[in-house]
Amino acid sequence: MLEEGQLYSPVEEHDDGTVTVHLAPNHPGVADAAYLARRAQIARLALTWRPGEPVPVVDYTDAEHEVWRAVCRELTAKHRRLAHSAYLEAWAAVDLPTDRVPQLAEVSERVGARTGFTFDPAPGLVPLRQFYGALADRTFHSTQYLRHPSQPLYTPEPDLVHEVIGHGVSLAAPPIAELHRLTGEAARRLHDEDALRFLAKVFWFTCEFGVIAEGGELRCYGAGLLSSYGEIEEFRRADVRPLDLLEMGTADYDITHFQPVLYRADSLAHLMDVVGGFFATMDDETPARLRGARAAP
């Protein structure tokens, strides 16, 4: 099984202050020296940033703005057909620019005005406890780099498109923001690493790849689907199952392919009752209790 953390390219900080971003061999930018340097430059901004300071401003290039424009242009129509209404309402409310890359501080200001969530810069992968725990404080750790311009509709790793169009806009929807906050509170209660991984898997199948019934159709609310040009068109062809906390918390998944199994909430209220209730009450013993309940005659 490939884990979610493997989505990120390792960032190495050297003694002389320089930074190297190690892209996977199949990454579109792995042989592009200019792109590698750009990734290192943006990663260094996050590495030198300290909490309480203004979020670093990235002077995005024309090529990066064009990537953002292309993604927004292609995803907007797909969202109207396939995204849950809570997401569409949040998108209209935050009114992020579609003709240029928004600054992370700008996203914080617009999303924070609705739900209090703000965005801290991250050079790449953030440790599970730090990432999930910060959600309790309504803080989301976000990258600031964009995918390689040769493939604006594809990325093998989370980038600013995923963080903002996927998670950022969703966090302007009060129910989804609350689901993230409850995730953070649960993570802070956990001491057992297996329990934390169980939580992370439930988060993956809901906040990242969750689908929901609305108006007689299946729509998506998961950030991974909302930010993916290809997968958003395919999720209705997946093996869509009812919400099942034990299955979600123990399932293997492969990050390199479209998710073949998804879990459906019957409504937003159902999502908050089942998944929100799970995060609100989870402790280190919850996975064992769920297994025991399933095994009971």
Rank of each mutant, 00 (worst) to 15 (best):
C72L: 06
R80N: 06
D239M: 06
E74H: 04
L75T: 06
S108I: 04
G230H: 11
Y229V: 12
V71R: 03
D16W: 02
E185P: 12
D254Y: 00
L179A: 08
A238K: 00
Y154G: 06
R189K: 03
L225G: 05
V101T: 06
C220E: 10
S9E: 08
G292K: 11
S267C: 03
G249L: 02
K78P: 11
W204C: 00
G210D: 06
W91N: 08
M272H: 12
A269H: 02
M1A: 07
L218N: 08
I255R: 00
R138G: 05
P97D: 09
F140K: 09
T115P: 09
E231W: 05
L23S: 14
T183P: 14
R80G: 10
F198Y: 04
L153E: 04
P149D: 01
G112F: 01
L246Y: 01
G222S: 08
A70H: 13
W204F: 01
H22R: 14
C207R: 14
A187N: 12
T76V: 07
R114Q: 11
A173C: 12
H148S: 03
D254L: 00
H180W: 09
R129K: 11
L104D: 11
S227N: 11
Y221W: 07
S108C: 06
V94S: 12
G292W: 12
F235A: 01
F131T: 09
E89Q: 14
T76W: 15
V19D: 06
D284H: 03
D239R: 14
G166F: 01
P297N: 13
R73Y: 10
P56S: 02
R291G: 02
D95Q: 02
L199Y: 00
A31I: 08
L153H: 14
D244A: 12
D99M: 13
V161W: 09
G224T: 03
G249R: 04
R69N: 10
R69C: 07
